[in-house]
Simulated assay, not measured.
Amino acid sequence: MQITCSPDAERVHVESVARARHGAALVRVVPVPRADRLLRPSEIQWALAGRGLVPVEAMPPRRWLARVAWLLECSPGQLEATGRLTTEDGAECSAAAPHLAAELIRSHGWRLPPPEPEPGPRQDQPPPSSATGFSVTWRAARDAYLGHLVRCPACIAHRLRNPIHCETGSALRCTYDGAS
């Protein structure tokens, strides 16, 4: 019989509830930390053998590494850049619980690495082809209008027949329409 309880439940309380339900038929209570679902027979045998944690099925190394990185709130690339874990470690440890690896890394002074730089357009690239045939004034008016729409909570420009603009948005729209 399996009973699930909160992680902070005391063993004495769980045993008393189990004894009240099953009486003399209860042989023993075996706590299995971090079991968040009903266990399969093989997992019950694992727990009865005194191994504690439920065994984790092996997963692909990149997926295991990504899971550990997610638990540490970083990307797999950032985790590999710190040298704490590599893809080879993922291959060796993919049958271990990712949360245990994350706990071990945290216990040794884990600090979140700086964010990876976002890939942006290179400076030596030509402008996108959609903007090459338009004048500089039109592009400036377009950028000003669209930049305002993104920041202004009062402007609703996605309505095809009846857009709503604030005073600034209305003036920028007139400038944009006049520039084309």
Rank of each mutant, 00 (worst) to 15 (best):
M1V: 15
Q2Y: 09
I3N: 01
D8H: 04
A9H: 01
E10D: 09
E10Q: 07
R11G: 01
V12E: 13
V12K: 07
V14C: 06
S16H: 11
V17E: 04
R19H: 11
R19T: 11
A24L: 11
A24Y: 06
A25Q: 12
V27F: 05
R28T: 12
V29S: 04
V30D: 00
V30Y: 00
P31I: 01
P31Y: 05
P33E: 03
A35G: 08
R37L: 00
L38H: 11
L38D: 11
L39K: 02
S42R: 12
E43I: 06
E43H: 10
E43L: 07
I44R: 13
Q45I: 05
W46N: 02
L48N: 04
L48V: 06
V56R: 08
M59L: 08
P60A: 13
W64I: 02
R67V: 07
E73M: 05
E73I: 05
S75L: 03
G77I: 02
L79M: 02
E80H: 04
A81L: 07
A81I: 01
A81C: 05
A81Q: 09
T82H: 00
T82M: 03
T86A: 08
D89F: 04
G90N: 03
E92N: 09
C93I: 12
S94Q: 10
A95F: 11
A95L: 06
A97I: 03
P98G: 11
H99A: 15
A101K: 06
E103Y: 08
L104G: 13
R106V: 04
G109A: 09
P114H: 04
P117T: 13
P117G: 09
E118N: 03
E118S: 10
P119Q: 14
Q123C: 14
P127G: 10
P128I: 08
S129Q: 14
S130L: 12
F134A: 13
F134Y: 15
V136P: 02
T137F: 01
W138I: 02
R139L: 15
A141G: 08
A141Y: 07
R142D: 13
R142L: 14
D143E: 15
A144L: 08
H148D: 06
V150T: 14
R151V: 08
P153D: 14
P153A: 15
P153Y: 10
A154D: 14
A157V: 03
H158R: 14
R159P: 00
R159F: 12
R159W: 10
L160P: 03
R161T: 12
P163E: 05
P163C: 04
I164P: 00
H165N: 09
E167A: 15
E167F: 06
E167R: 11
L172A: 05
R173Y: 14
Y176K: 07
A179K: 07
S180C: 07
S180Y: 10
